[in-house]
Design a protein around this nucleic acid. Structure first.
Lengths: 334, 334
DNA sequence: ATGAAAGCGCTAACAT
DNA sequence: ATGTTAGCGCTTTCAT
């Protein structure tokens, strides 16, 4: 049985003051570099603090100075997905420059969980929230209830106005479609993720618009939606290729699905053309044509919007659109 | 000029109590589901809270209940690196189950920045810290000074004892070396990252030990260290291949370097055999033999160790070793 | 240049 | 079952 049963509380400013033989307030002034402290006093206080191993209690300070923390929350899907981690990386880097810290939580693509995480973050008095909504639309409703600046990333809020950073989904998808059409393809399959997310819908409609404009309805029987993971994508693409009249080209609407499709295409003697939305590591090595966009910039832009609001910026919601451009690398040109 | 100059403070428990016509403490009890509150009172309080849009102030609660937050910090390199984001993903998932939140900060591979981030997190009273040190060893020193449980991930602390989760770097590297030797290779190049990190040193020494055991010194002139990014790896591998007597096989000691090597090998008529440390997305599609290990498990294990300490577990530091196994996929067998 | 008192929003301890 | 008082560790008046 250990002798020290006490959960050793860290030293307080009061203890530092006592040790330095000054008042609480003087110690506070000295450590915060405020004026009106004699050099000698400041030195004594600093030394006492060092000896005690004193660390400021940020909770207490923040409670006193306004009840709000130096934290910004990011609610997204699993960071194991490079898209989300790229956003997190960009956001963290931007926030850090302003002395803000990023809390990342995974909504597991579940609307219920998402709301409860939202509450947890608001209770921690985060100064802003960046959200890549799971798609349930639940967040949007609670957003207005809480009194915290919200920035929606990749997916616009439904039923409310708010700051928002989007990818040019429609334009990117249209570019992909036109590229494949220009290559002479007509039977073009579209493999998409959950249609409940606005970003997926935008990609699908951009693609559809280009097909319509080209007078090509031959893709409609090859539309596959709500394909949510790589393994399913592999299966679905396999099934497409086994069709009596298989598609000659393929458009996958995010990185996971593109990778799943690649697995299905392995060892395929005459693989269909492939264009994927989202760039990914090794796409250049594997030679995959993609619709690329700067994912970390998405996070940085979101953090900047949030920071403006934290700084008191009022005014109508702003939307930043990140461009998406086609990068030919071989797979889309065969 | 806006009319409402006041930065609308969120409602407090006191206001809820007043509105419900009860005392502060009763309101507290009601909302926290404590016993000894009549059903009618509880309902009145809950309704008042709803009407006001009341949110608990976690800062105040935590200050009162012990001066410590529900936050755990993770200091690592850029989340854009899939290794770090996998660790973050695993850690977050584990912590979330215990109601803890994860703060991620990027040390930018800079020891100075790392210490200042450390201070920032400690001041926010994080309950534990998970660290993938930049390698400067600075963290280790400050770790003991602060009174917070530390868990070192991927790299052991220098000059102190602490909880720690490691990959079987030596064993994994040895397996890679033996695999290449078994394939008949003698001139085997080793491309490694910064040797100041213990994990890299372990991988190099595991490799070296296997070479020694096999009586093969023919690798020593092909050793390249402190290759820190993919672009440099591409260049270095290119140079190796241009040697009068180029290596017939290649071992790269992390995911970034493997990917850089792959770029150099593109369009190479007779590419050398390749084994890389760390698995990565698409490795199966590209057919790259790797030394694989469960990166998210690294994060989960670290979070578990941290949670035990938070729960008051004392006792000597523990080390968890995550196994690393060779996965043949073609590139290592040619 | 320094200090005393008050209070941020909450919960713990002790009434009633 | 409900209320009162005190205080977490800090910063903000307002003295001195």
């Amino acid at each position: 049985m250990p002798a020290d049963e006490s959960p050793v509380r860290p030293p307080t400013l009061n203890q530092v003051a006592a040790r330095a033989g000054v008042s609480l307030k003087t110690a506070s002034r000295a450590l915060n570099g405020e004026p009106y402290v004699s050099g000698a006093t400041e030195r004594r206080v600093r030394q006492a603090a060092d000896e005690l191993g004193y660390r400021l209690n940020g909770l207490a300070r923040e409670l006193r100075t306004g009840g709000t923390s130096a934290l910004v929350g990011l609610i997204s899907g699993d960071l194991a997905n490079p898209f989300y981690s790229a956003v997190a990386s960009g956001a963290e880097r931007e926030l850090r420059q302003h002395g803000l810290l990023l809390i990342t939580v995974n909504n597991d693509e579940d609307g219920e969980l998402e709301s409860s995480l939202l509450t947890a973050l608001v209770e921690r008095r985060v100064r802003a929230l960046l959200v890549i909504p799971s798609g349930g639309g639940l967040v949007a409703n609670s957003a207005s209830a809480h009194n915290v600046p919200f920035v929606f990333v990749d997916r616009p809020p439904v039923g409310m106005a708010a700051d928002c950073v989007l990818i040019d989904n429609t334009g990117g998808a249209r570019a992909a479609a036109e590229h494949l059409l220009a290559g002479g393809h007509r039977r073009i399959a579209l493999v998409a993720d959950l249609v409940r997310t606005a970003s997926q819908r935008a990609r699908i409609s951009g693609f559809a618009a280009a097909m319509r404009a080209a007078g090509n309805p031959a893709w409609e029987s090859y539309l596959r939606t709500d394909v949510h993971d790589a393994a399913t994508a592999t299966r679905v693409v396999g099934e497409l290729l086994d069709l009596p009249e298989p598609p000659t080209a393929l458009f996958t609407t995010n990185n996971r699905l593109t990778i799943g499709a690649l697995r299905a295409l392995r060892g395929c003697r005459r693989p269909p053309a492939l264009v994927g939305f989202d760039d990914f590591e090794l796409a250049d090595v594997v030679g995959v044509t993609v619709v690329a966009h700067d994912m970390t910039e998405l996070g940085r832009a979101a953090a900047r919007l949030a920071f403006d609001r934290i700084g008191g910026h009022t005014g109508p919601p702003r939307t930043v659109v990140i461009p998406a451009t086609l990068v030919p690398r071989g797979s889309g040109e065969r």
